[in-house]
Amino acid sequence: MTGANLTYLSLLLLLLFPLGLLVVLYLITRPRPARVPIKNRHVFITGGSSGIGLALAHRAASEGARVSILARSIDKLEAAKQEILLSTGIDVAVFAADVRDYDALSRAVEEAGPIDVLVVNQGVFVPQELERQGLDEVKFMLDVNLMGAFNMVKAALPAIKLQRRDRGPGSIALMSSQAGQVGIYGYTAYSASKFGLRGLAEALQQEVIADDIHVSLIFPPDTDTPGLVEETKIRPQLTSIIAASSGAMKADEVAKRALDGIKSGSFIIPCNFEGLLLSIATAGFSPQRSVLMAFVEIVAAGITRFAALCFLWNWYGSIEKWHAKQH
């Protein structure tokens, strides 16, 4: 065989390999692609009185959804209701309840009626090194962010499953964080609560797929909300240095990415380029509906691992420099 023939054969194999891989991925990628409509459907959002939740409520209402929002403060809920009414002309339903109270959530869901899209968005964050943080604050974050998600999903499941086949695909979306993809200095308890949502989401998707319910896990970066303003006042200096490697986003930008991802049935929903890289780097055993994204995850796995090691090199370098200055 001549050198020219070997070159031709090598090029042919290089072309056939990705095509063959795409064919295999088409056959094995699960769950299958799905579309979750929003218009004329009931979208129920926790933590809906401010920040990302309020932005999601605005966007869902503007797309023709029937929206319900839940939060602890009835005053903030009423203010959010008026804000949405003025901007969209849509009247949303409001429910005052604490996600740590399962019975209160069950009553709210019963009053709200059948749910098509549930967005579990509530979250609290008190940044601090574990050594300095009280266990009461750790428990508070775990109770609201993680146990609150369990409470909400369990309370809402009967309302989501009710006559599901007659109503079309449903969705359960959990608002995690980029701190739920990678641990960050000062986020010990917060990261633990957000990492926990991934385990919940992966197992839950297997449990509800037969009911045509599609689980999404949203990973926003720092988002320009009232909560972020308060958090930056008290978080450790090292946390700010490390978190600066991923830029902040506006709440309405996160809401758009989140809702688009929910509508496409995506399991993992990154909100910016850094989030996309993190999603590829941490894909693991997560469900993947997109054959193209499955291909990218496989091909880019080594590259993203190298990028992750570069980030970690930078972060640990910052930590070493900071501690050296303290001594």
Rank of each mutant, 00 (worst) to 15 (best):
K139R: 14
F140D: 01
L142P: 04
D143Y: 05
D143L: 07
V144P: 11
N145L: 13
M147H: 04
G148Y: 03
A149G: 04
A149Q: 07
A149M: 08
A149W: 03
F150E: 08
F150G: 06
N151T: 12
M152A: 15
M152L: 15
V153T: 02
V153Y: 00
K154F: 12
A155Y: 00
A155P: 15
A156I: 05
A156M: 10
L157D: 05
P158L: 15
P158M: 13
I160R: 12
K161T: 13
K161F: 10
K161H: 08
K161S: 15
L162I: 14
Q163F: 07
Q163H: 13
R165T: 06
D166K: 13
D166Y: 04
G168F: 09
G168V: 12
G168E: 04
P169H: 00
P169L: 04
P169F: 01
S171R: 04
S171V: 14
I172W: 01
A173C: 08
A173M: 01
L174T: 09
L174S: 01
L174D: 00
L174P: 06
L174A: 03
M175P: 06
S176C: 11
S176N: 03
Q178D: 06
A179S: 15
A179Y: 02
A179D: 04
G180K: 02
G180Y: 02
Q181W: 09
Q181V: 04
V182P: 09
G183Y: 05
Y185S: 10
Y187G: 09
T188H: 14
A189R: 04
A189T: 07
Y190I: 11
S191F: 13
A192H: 10
A192R: 12
S193T: 11
K194S: 04
K194W: 06
F195A: 14
L197P: 03
L197T: 04
L197V: 07
L197K: 00
L197H: 04
R198Q: 05
G199W: 08
L200S: 04
A201K: 15
E202M: 09
A203T: 11
A203R: 02
L204S: 01
L204D: 02
Q205F: 02
Q205G: 05
Q205S: 13
Q205D: 02
Q206K: 13
E207A: 06
I209V: 07
I213P: 12
S216K: 06
I218S: 03
I218E: 00
F219S: 15
P220M: 14
P221R: 08
P221E: 00
P221Q: 03
D222L: 14
T223Q: 07
D224K: 14
T225E: 06
T225Y: 07
P226M: 09
P226D: 01
P226N: 03
G227Y: 13
L228P: 02
L228E: 03
V229H: 09
V229N: 08
E230D: 10
E230Q: 11
E231G: 12
K233W: 10
K233T: 12
I234W: 09
R235S: 05
P236T: 01
P236W: 00
